[in-house]
Simulated assay, not measured.
Amino acid sequence: MNLRSLGDALASRPSSVSRLCDRMEAVGLIRRVPSSTSRREVEVGLSPLGEQVLGELRDHRARLRLAALSPFVERVLGITGVSGVLPVFRGVEEALEADAV
C-alpha cells in the first residue's frame, strides 16, 4: 500500500501519515520499499514483527469479545462453553473482516 492510499484509508493528512510511518518504522513494525510501479512512490507493509504484533492484538480483541458477548450467546442461542461459543465468534469476525475489505 502506498502512503497516499494509507492516508485515504485513515482519513488523515499526508504529513501525519508520514510521521506515523516514521515512528512505526523506527520500532520495527513496518517496512518501506520502493514501489514496483512508480519510482516516486514508496510502499508500506508490515514487518515480521508488525505481523506478530497484529496477530497478538487480534487475539486479544477476540478474547475481549468472547468475554463480553459469551453471556448473551449462551442466553439467546443456548450455546455454552468456550468450545461452543468460539466458532460463533470466529464466523462473525470473518464476516466482519470480509465486509471491511
Rank of each mutant, 00 (worst) to 15 (best):
M1D: 05
N2L: 01
N2G: 10
L3H: 06
R4W: 12
R4N: 14
S5V: 06
L6A: 05
D8C: 00
A9R: 11
L10R: 03
A11T: 10
A11D: 14
S12M: 15
S15F: 06
S16R: 13
S16W: 06
V17G: 00
S18Q: 15
C21F: 10
D22C: 09
D22I: 10
R23K: 12
R23N: 09
A26P: 01
A26L: 03
G28I: 01
G28C: 02
R31P: 01
R32F: 02
R32E: 05
V33N: 09
V33K: 10
V33G: 02
P34N: 05
S36Y: 01
T37P: 01
S38P: 02
S38D: 15
R39K: 13
R40A: 14
E41D: 15
E43N: 14
V44N: 04
G45R: 08
G45N: 03
L46K: 04
S47M: 08
S47F: 01
G50L: 00
E51S: 11
E51G: 05
V53A: 05
R58H: 14
R61Y: 08
R61F: 05
R61K: 06
A62R: 02
A62N: 04
R63G: 00
L64I: 09
L64N: 09
A67F: 08
A68P: 01
F72E: 07
E74S: 15
L77F: 10
I79H: 07
T80E: 15
V82S: 08
V82G: 02
V82P: 03
S83F: 04
G84A: 03
L86W: 04
P87W: 06
G91I: 10
G91A: 11
E94H: 02
E94G: 00
E97A: 12
E97V: 05
A98K: 13
A98M: 09
A98C: 06
D99G: 03
A100K: 02
V101S: 15
V101F: 10
